[in-house]
Design a binder for these strands. Sequence first.
DNA 1: CCTATATATGAATAATTATTCATATATAGA
DNA 2: TCTATATATGAATAATTATTCATATATAGG
Lengths: 126, 126
Amino acid sequence: MRRLKIEVCEDQLIHRDVVHQVKDKMLSYDAIFDLSTFFQVFSDETRLRILEALLVSELCVCDIASLLSMSQSSISHQLRTLRELSLVKPRKEGKVVYYSLMDDHIKKILDLGLEHVMEDENEKER
Amino acid sequence: MRRLKIEVCEDQLIHRDVVHQVKDKMLSYDAIFDLSTFFQVFSDETRLRILEALLVSELCVCDIASLLSMSQSSISHQLRTLRELSLVKPRKEGKVVYYSLMDDHIKKILDLGLEHVMEDENEKER
DNA sequence: CCTATATATGAATAATTATTCATATATAGA
DNA sequence: TCTATATATGAATAATTATTCATATATAGG
């Protein structure tokens, strides 16, 4: 996001009516912000792989790091992000912290995304 | 993504069996990459607002710029991104280029995201 | 209490990316 | 053909972010 400087097609829009009609149906800035934040979580390969893994089973930080062949620090940072966005929850058992998914909304989202991606794959083949 | 330097919890994972089991069910790197690329589209507020607007009606570049109070250049760049990822399609009519959504998968994705975001909102209120 | 290990986290860095600016291309109308 | 306008796009810039490195915290076991 950057500084704002409006420059609107020679100061007049072409289809005034339609634009006004659309404007009325738009989400609030807050909703859009939350939505973009939510989707951003799924835009990172590491986070996607973490979520995907947790879809199968609860795992500790160490397990995830090992599974993804990544550093413990990196995984911890990403888990923090996921935690802060209420997508995963920790369960402490001694030194070990186990993470699991907060709800199964996540599976729905991933599946829908995958569905779309697969369609694109098929179209490329034709 | 950065250079890779593995560091795996003192070189041994804690729950070897579970990790192996999870590993078998993981998506390919390609699929994960495509998935992250797909979700990344929805992680930007401007793109979300463009998609949301096109959900209501087909619009030309100029209309979108006006609607979002953003520069024509900025919108064109984002439309290019959306076009390249097959989320919108252009229709040229003289000088004017009208954009519309490629399919209605997009509505499903947005709705699902919104559903999740709204739930979070409600939880905060309690 | 001391050591080893699991996890968390702040700061720095490298990479990515959204917007701006300048400019190019395309088309309609005079 | 000349001009005005709609759109596209390359390069530069500013902001964001994923990972690393160093280190802190917490806990189990001796």
